[in-house]
Design a protein around this nucleic acid. Structure first.
Lengths: 345, 345
DNA sequence: CTGTTAGCGCGTTCAA
DNA sequence: TTGAACGCGCTAACAG
């Protein structure tokens, strides 16, 4: 079948354990033997069998990645492939592998994670979502199984390592940008209120508005299912107001796409008549016209850092829980511009 | 540490091998013992250790999924999360797991796949791309390692199991739709010519045009990097022609987004002045305005079927290579409409 | 510096 | 119908 450590041993005339030591680069092996063994490994095409290795060792050098259960259409968000790439970029360097779980339902996902954990498939897991009262989170905590969350945990925030952006600050800054451009009537369109991303960004928006002493009517805050046809409802609602906004802060690029199209349908020109800013900076944001002014949250880095934090944790179980903040930057493009005031009569 | 087969044996007062047989649901074990053993397994919280199992058995019940190396920005295409879901939906049912490889470069990807194959991490792999002269494909063929390709292989098409759409037919049908709407000047905008998806869809377009005896000037065919700023170039090129098209067949939804925005910038109204149709039917196509008339290629099914085909192959090595065609349907939305002819003078 | 031995958790003979 | 013994490929003592 496959070439094993024994074959290499035989071919080199040493014992299997010596070969094993060479693999581990044990310093107590003569450079010369190492060389010979390595040569044999190469010529025979030897590759270690992970299963055997995992069986004896304590580490599988594999981490599990849990996607949100896909009832959630949000899954089609380009955010996910991108964060996977980020995770992969780090794990690859360390020769770690990735185990993926996509479940249709919460139930399915839970199943898979149980297998991963109990079956010792993986050393730790990364949760790509954060939900209130999440069974999975609780399960992992109880088992004291290493995991990190991308985003902000709902409970036990100080006991769970998580990688996140400062969404409050981001929300504040991007809103301030609109204010600096002269906007005063600025509305917020957000996804599900159940998500911290939404509420944090919204709080930032509110804070900026209040600091600038701007009016903050309740009906300037609109929530819809993450993207979905939410764009339509939002626009219909906001622009039938007596006092429609001239600026829009939208909590997710994808949702902005929906809003942008609606705006166009309504005959509202962006950015001439209304300015739009949002969050994430997915690739499409620069493809779309007008190109989106948006907060770059560094999705790729979010992924890489979560992998890093998790691996550290699996290696050193006593590594304390921490919160890792990934800096954001604003990318200025064409969807927001200075408010053209109507010329005074 | 973890509870093993031995613990269960001890608790039940049987031998480890009996427990093993119960797990395998061996018919030669008395129903009664089975019951007792199962009860103990449950109460002790027993879960089989995969590594031990894989080590002895021949199957890992795990399949590897290879994403295109991500130098390719195409990776942000929502196509990928969706196909992953499709794969997952099938593997989950059979209690299979997913191993993921995202490499930045072809080199990295090749590394990872080598590990997967030689290290016996997986029973087989699914390639989510198809490139000419692909090292990986060749490697897998040489090793006779089970794999399937989503899309159309470049070589040895009859020896490689692949799951694909009939892109020629799809291209033809969607073009015919435009023709039925009265369009005669129809251009094609495609991604990389290196991809079969592109060329097949294009051939379908050409065939429809020829059947309808319509003019097919060379400069009606435009290629650009999959999405990228290709939209701009395409529109600039096509609409500065003496005889600009009124209909556009675009080989990928994402690219359509770019084109749509460009069209808007050029002051060309869709579908009033120009009709647009494309392929894939990613979720965003219905969010965007105008909502895209596009070919639904059933991404999810593409994934599920590739998993199915692969698993069959890993179970029965002599399963013949086959081509699996996933049917497509056209989703009629708002981006294409009847050509309004200029009133005769 | 290197070889020998034992054992990781499980499936599979071969006996009983 | 069940148990005992062996081995999958590898690492980790313990010797030497």
């Amino acid at each position: 079948m496959s070439v094993t450590i024994k074959d290499v041993a035989k071919a080199t005339g040493v014992s299997p354990s010596t070969v094993s030591r060479v693999i581990a680069d044990n310093p107590r092996i003569s450079p010369e033997t190492k060389k010979r063994v390595r040569k044999a490994m190469k010529s025979l095409g030897y590759y270690p069998n992970v299963n055997a290795r995992n069986l004896v060792g304590k580490s599988t050098k594999t981490i599990g990645v849990i996607m949100p259960s896909s009832a959630d259409k949000a899954l089609q968000n380009p955010f996910f492939p991108e964060i996977l790439r980020g995770i992969g970029s780090y794990t690859h360097k360390l020769q770690y592998s990735l185990f993926l779980s996509t479940g249709e339902t919460e139930e399915e996902t839970f199943d898979e994670v149980q297998r991963m954990v109990y079956g010792s498939y993986v050393d730790g897991v990364i949760l790509l979502y954060s939900r209130a009262n999440d069974r999975l989170t609780q399960f992992l905590r109880e088992r004291e199984f290493p995991f990190v969350i991308v985003g902000k945990p709902y409970e036990h925030m100080n006991e769970i390592t998580h990688v996140d952006n400062d969404n409050f600050a981001a929300g504040k800054e991007i809103t301030e940008h609109l204010i600096e451009l002269g906007h005063e009537k600025i509305a917020f369109i957000g996804g599900s209120r159940e998500l911290f991303v939404t509420t944090d960004r919204q709080s930032g928006y509110e804070s900026a508005m209040m600091d600038a002493k701007l009016n903050l009517p309740e009906n300037y805050k609109f929530h819809a299912e993450f993207l979905k046809s939410g764009g339509r409802e939002a626009v219909e609602h906001l622009f039938s107001l007596d006092n429609p906004p001239t600026g829009l802060v939208i909590s997710d690029d994808l949702m902005s796409f929906g809003v942008l199209s609606m705006l166009e349908e309504f005959g509202l020109s962006v950015p001439r008549e209304v300015s739009v800013v949002s969050f994430n900076n997915v690739y499409l944001s620069e493809i779309i016209r007008p190109a989106l002014t948006t907060v770059d949250v560094q999705i790729h880095t979010l992924g890489a850092q979560s992998a890093k934090a998790l691996i550290e944790k699996t290696i050193n179980k006593s590594e304390p829980a921490k919160r890792i903040m990934i800096p954001h930057t604003i990318v200025y493009r064409d969807s927001a511009s200075e408010l053209k005031r109507k010329p005074l009569k």
